[in-house]
Design a protein around this nucleic acid. Structure first.
Length: 650
RNA sequence: GCUGGCGUGGCACAGUAGGUAGCGCACCUCAUUGGUAGUGAGGAGGUCACGGGUUCGAUUCCCGUCGCUAGCUCCA
């Protein structure tokens, strides 16, 4: 047979050979580090026998994504083996490789850190033993019998769910056998550096209706140094965690007695939200939006009409005694029905459309207790919420304009590279969650897809992620923990206009239901702030800083001048504080040192005499002395243009 | 909601194999200080989240509640 390697060179062999043996023939070193291979475009196990004929073959090592997967998947089997040795009664579920590591789910009691350490030790022992990993297959019936004998009910369920005719493969290392599609390394010895990270609960097959299993997370690297670097990196990114940084920077706090999911914005945090909100409201106004201000609650009748009562009741705070239902009020989880009521307060002609409503809208959602997280998942939040009411002909242009607004916001905040687009569609089988009008769903999803493709938006599609009334384009952000959240959303709504009987008169005098775009521009302010904290590690761009300049007199003698400088800055809308207490200089400049206050002005005799300031910035460090008026002009320009400057010194 | 972990002065943490608690930073007072967490002296601040149980005695052990947190599930 003829094997074409990735560098184009050709090897010829007589008779069948395994991928592993070919790797060994290329070089012994390559065989040692081989994790998996790509044979004729398919990822295959190293044990795969290559038949006669011409083939292309690339040996994949830990450096390749697929290699990492195979490597870590093998590590997960070692984990499973170790667990079975220490806890023979544990039942195996599944154990895949994931980004940066692997996990394995077991039906067993929960584990503490000491138990994890014990398992980790056993894993290292297994690696040292270096058992060969063998692959074999069984017919379905025998596979089930085999797992029955091993008393592995979850594995039996998995086998039974495999499509008829699919090859059922197993991997064995020593006395441990696992149902697995592979690929795997050739020996447990191949796994060099492992670490168990944590354990937690996880539902069997991801459904809360099923049994809760114990999941163990771990990671594995080819080199010890890389593992250590990764662990350090994990520690490092925790320092960006908005939940930690936001509290440390006194942006927000929480209180047991106030309640879960109800963060308290402290003066600095509130300041940032105010800056963002003013900016967004002004920007939207420039783009033809009109502001509304609607109630925080409404009679349940409104939500029954809108469909929220049927599709979103679980997520709502209901006020009043549910026994006397006619009197029930509910806090609003969304603004739509309110803005629609404003629309309905007058008669509309097609000439009025589009109408773009926006509101900085405080919303309430009764999230389950385990969902709350810092500023990212809360029970009360403020959304830059808007609804565009338009004709079918206007839909595309309005969608375009919405995207353009969002892009402007993301560019200004410098987060456009940090987000991904998700086209969220309904699931026709989930009739509980969605308004069941398949035709309307098809129609609006097609409409959205068409627009997205035209705008060349690089999106991924997601089933069963839509709103109950229509498809969404979600802008996704990944937080420091690697968890993805929606930061901004644009939705096409085919349903609520009809439900709430929204109408306009078209050119022919006919009454019609308009289309509605639900959209956020900057998202929910709390969540967006969380993202900005993590993005900037607390070093916000100057225009967003709650404190932009701090003035420090070198001795109390110059406190007056420091005060004068501060007043002058405040006069020019620059947020400045002066600190007279010279014994505090050291501590007070800590934040400036960390880059959280971008500018530090030091003043003494020389500065007072010449009306100058000695400037230190996070951008350039010691920038020397300059005229106060020059400094003011510079910083004002930076704030006005919302510059994103890169910190060169911190 | 589920499965873990955690909850000690404003913040970040020690500690107690059960005998009612400390450190650092911050805070207050005095002195000193012309240069980037300055120095010296002194001081205040905690019923160890809350409720119950076991015990002669609980911050420490057990149970419950609340909150924080990592996942899962669900969502902006």
């Amino acid at each position: 047979m003829k094997i074409i390697l990735k560098d184009g060179s050709v090897k010829e062999y007589a008779g069948e050979m395994s991928v592993y043996d070919i790797a060994g023939d290329i070089s012994e070193g390559l065989a040692r580090v081989a994790c998996t291979a790509e044979l004729d475009g398919q990822i295959v196990d190293l044990r795969t026998m290559v038949s006669e004929g011409e083939h292309t073959l690339t040996i994949l090592t830990f450096d390749a994504e697929e290699g990492k997967s195979a490597y870590r998947h093998t590590a997960s089997h070692i984990l499973a083996q170790a667990v079975k040795r220490l806890y023979p009664e544990a039942k195996l579920a599944i154990g895949p490789a994931i980004k940066d590591g692997f996990y394995y789910d077991f039906d067993m009691d929960s584990l503490d850190r000491a138990a994890l350490d014990g398992i980790e030790k056993e894993m290292k022992k297994i690696i040292k033993e270096g058992a060969r990993i063998e692959r074999f297959t069984l017919p379905r019936k025998e596979a089930v019998d085999f797992m029955q004998k091993k008393e592995e009910p979850y594995k039996i369920e998995l086998i039974e769910d495999l499509p008829e005719g699919e090859e059922i493969s197993f991997y064995q290392q020593g006395d441990f056998v696992d149902l697995c599609a592979g690929p795997h390394l050739m020996s447990t010895k191949g796994v060099k550096a492992i670490k168990l990270i944590s354990s937690s609960g996880a539902y069997w097959r991801g459904s809360e209706k099923n049994k809760s299993l114990t999941r163990i997370y771990g990671t594995a690297f080819h080199k010890k140094e890389d593992l250590n670097a990764h662990l350090e990196h994990l520690e490092d990114i925790k320092k960006r965690d908005h939940n930690r940084l936001g509290r440390e920077m006194k942006l927000f706090t929480t209180s047991d007695i106030v309640g879960q999911g109800l963060p308290l914005m402290m003066p600095k945090g509130a300041r940032i939200l105010q800056i963002l909100q003013r900016w967004i409201e002004d920007e939207e106004s420039k783009r033809g939006y009109v502001l509304t201000k609607t109630p925080y609650m409404a009679k349940s009748d409104l939500f029954k009409l809108s469909g929220h009562w049927d599709h979103y009741k679980e997520g709502m705070f209901i006020i009043g005694d549910s026994e006397k239902e006619e009197d029930l009020l509910a806090l609003r989880p969304m603004t739509c029905p309110f803005q629609f009521s404003i629309y309905n307060a007058e008669a509309h002609s097609y000439k009025d459309l589009p109408i773009r409503y926006n509101e900085t809208s405080t919303l309430f959602r009764n999230e389950s207790s385990g969902e709350m997280h810092g500023l990212i998942r809360v029970r009360q939040f403020t959304l830059s919420e808007g609804h565009i009411v338009c004709t079918p002909e206007q839909l595309e242009q309005e969608f375009r304009d919405t995207i353009s607004l969002i892009k402007y916001i993301m560019t200004t905040l410098d987060i456009e590279k940090d987000i991904t687009y998700r086209f969220s569609k309904w699931d026709p089988n989930n009739t509980e969650k969605y308004i069941n009008e398949p035709e309307a769903w098809e129609n609006s999803q097609n409409r959205m897809k068409e627009i997205l493709d035209k705008l060349e938006i690089p999106y991924t599609e997601a089933e069963d992620e839509a709103a109950f009334y229509g498809p969404k384009l979600d802008l996704q952000f990944v937080n420091v923990h690697g968890k993805e959240d929606t930061i901004i959303t644009i939705q096409i709504d085919f349903a609520l206009g009809k439900r709430l009987n929204m109408l306009y008169t078209d050119a022919g005098g006919e009454k019609k239901n308009p289309w509605v775009i639900h959209r956020s521009s900057i998202g929910c302010y709390e969540r967006t702030l969380a993202m900005l904290i993590e993005k900037y590690m607390g070093m916000f761009p100057t225009w967003l800083c709650p404190e932009q300049v701090r003035i420090l007199p070198i001795s109390e003698k110059y406190a007056d001048y420091a005060g004068k400088v501060r007043d002058e800055l405040l006069e020019h809308d620059i947020r400045a504080e002066a600190d007279y207490r010279s014994e505090k200089i050291g501590y007070k400049i800590r934040e400036a040192r960390l880059g959280r206050i971008p500018y530090l002005l030091i003043v003494g005799q020389e500065e007072e005499e010449n009306n100058t300031v000695a400037l230190r910035s996070r951008y350039k460090g010691d920038e020397g002395s300059r005229k106060l008026s020059d400094f003011i002009a510079e910083i004002r320009e930076e704030i006005r243009t919302k510059q994103i400057r890169k910190a060169e010194t911190v």
